[in-house]
Design a binder for these strands. Structure first.
Lengths: 342, 342
DNA sequence: AATAGTATTGCAAATGTTTTCATAAATTTG
DNA sequence: CAAATTTATGAAAACATTTGCAATACTATT
């Protein structure tokens, strides 16, 4: 019952075993309706017996789709991206595609290299995170005419179709929430914005929103930290021990916000009584921290799932039409922010 | 300077442009030392000009390696696996391989389906998480003679080569730590062990270790929760409000432990004064929670990186030799556990 | 200058599939 | 029952590469 043939088992071995031609075997897989049920049964039996597994490389070479989609993310090891990856993966799997995954560590040159690598594998499409990519990457995509998709960000002006949220808006919502609560001394912890348009958009929107209300952030209350709880915690500790401590902290994302929260707890500051904290993202777990983190909800899972669905549709469609989807944002007020009024 | 040719640009287009034969072009890529530097230069120029990208599908079909490795994990969206995936991905990327990733949601039949899918893509190897797999999966792997690797777990008896930690030992270390501190009333929160040998090994070792000291866990102090902060928090809330609250909680992993910690905080229990908590895993962030989580450190990043390195070595080696690596565990005592003696 | 050896290159076969076209068999129709 | 369809199958070309072998050109040796 196993692969008893000495040599390789390919479509012609199956054909031989079933006493039909290779064409018929191929048809059994690709257009089963065109082959006699009886023959089909014979062939399937032979397939079982030999343990034959279709060779997608050969199909690909023939011009059929490879059945793979490449996804390039800044980093896999990150609450938010892993959620997107999971959803995207599940979603394209449903459509019969496999996921080729790579990360570039926020280095757009590496991103280019990864896209190239994927192109060598003849992926049926490439999905990238964010809207900022190197010229080389953009050129490559248009030259090779490969279906491409930007996920996570949304922008009207995006040259690529995109599925994501408007990060300007996310920053603005966060800022406005704090302003509404009466905060005027606001500390900012954001990651390096170089090569990270999400952070960049959020940060500039925050400054705009604050500026509109005449609020400015002194240099010593604006600090950088990467997306790491522990480094964010350090940064927050430094910021919170400056002479004139802000009344609220607005963080570039929820990982940073968690770091900030732990820093506050370490300093025995009561959140939200002594300090309000707001994050951006609403990561898994943000709701469960004590106290529950106030944040701007970005529907990561939704984005991933939707992106996967629309992208595979796009790829398999005969007359693919451009699409771009903006996912809604929402301010989720939990227990880490409070009004200064009372 | 771009792909001006109307048609497709393949190796023969390049050959034509460089006025050499396709063989020479192929050789330039695969055995550069066999071709005249001058010709090589001509060819590279043509490659640039036409924007040619190698077709791995065609290479694969010819019997060369596909340059892909398949990794099947229970779930991507999980602190610990995403860390392993990241490290594994980086590691195999260094060796020139691409990562095909899939998740099965703790369903071993889906795991089988994913492995099959990967075999269709002619991956050069498959890496699985854990040692427990369906018979079908094991049969498939041996029949197809595909290099396979189990990561995350380690066991002497593993039929597959493996790189990972001994989860029995992890459970035992956690239990012994609590016992040494004098705890006798210990609550347990573990995930469903069905299809999850990590959890299963840990849990049984915990029971063994406790039993050896004559400690048993009453039913109402042993509860199940999946690897989710919020669900673990719920489970812990229930457990901690039973009539006779345990003095310590031993959690199946750090995600659960975090949930338990938040539950304690919500109940205004002081950790570790009123309650000790120990996790397993030492995830990113576990050190930074307040108070810092005591846990059994499993070196996820190490495991991923090592696995990737050894596996690619194995695949590319001429006479591959079996290997299995056990990674060391360590009890990291932070601030969520305390001795009952004092 | 002839010989042997080496460095380059091209030809053609092989890889595993899909698909177009042609053919043969079976079925329907008048 | 013959003609016209329809259904089922096979033969062969095509897909993009790699590589063994043969051929040619070049270099060094005597």
């Amino acid at each position: 019952m196993a692969n008893f043939q000495k040599g390789k088992v390919d479509i012609v071995a199956v054909a031989k075993a079933a006493k039909v031609s290779p064409s018929t075997v191929s048809r059994t897989f690709n257009h089963p309706d065109l082959v006699n049920p009886a023959t089909r049964k014979k062939i399937n039996k032979a397939v079982q017996r030999l343990g034959y597994i279709r060779n997608r490389a050969a199909q690909t070479m023939h011009g059929k789709r490879s059945g793979t989609i490449g996804l390039v993310v800044p980093t896999i090891n990150h609450a938010i991206f892993s959620e997107v990856i999971q959803a995207f993966s599940d979603s394209i799997d449903k459509a019969g595609f496999s996921l080729l995954l790579a990360s570039h560590g926020y280095d757009l040159d590496r991103e280019y290299a990864m896209v190239r690598k994927f192109l060598e594998h003849r992926v049926d499409g490439v999905a990238l995170v964010g809207l900022e990519h190197s010229d080389a990457t953009n050129r490559l995509i248009t030259q090779q005419k490969i279906p491409a998709l930007a996920i996570w960000n949304y922008s009207e002006e995006s040259p690529l179709p995109c599925v994501g949220a408007d990060n300007h808006l996310a920053g603005r919502l966060a800022a406005e929430h704090l302003l509404e609560l009466g905060h005027r001394d606001i500390g900012l912890i954001f990651p390096e914005t170089q090569g990270n348009d999400r952070a960049q958009h959020r940060l500039s929107a925050v400054h705009d929103a604050l500026g509109e209300q005449g609020v400015s952030v002194p240099d010593e209350h604006e600090t950088q930290a990467p997306y790491s709880v522990s480094q964010a915690k350090q940064a927050a500790l430094a910021l919170l021990t400056t002479p004139k401590r802000p009344t609220a902290l607005l963080c570039g994302n929820d990982v940073i916000a968690q770091g900030a929260l732990f820093a506050a707890q370490k300093l025995r500051l009561s959140v939200p009584d002594d300090l309000s904290i707001i994050g951006i993202g609403d990561f898994k777990g943000s709701a469960d921290v004590e106290p529950g983190l106030t944040t701007i909800r970005i529907p990561a899972e939704n984005i991933g799932a939707l992106a996967g669905e629309k992208f595979t549709d796009f790829i398999t469609s005969d007359d693919p039409k451009h699409f771009s989807i903006r996912c809604d944002l929402e301010c989720v007020a939990r227990q880490t922010t409070r009004s200064l009024a009372t």
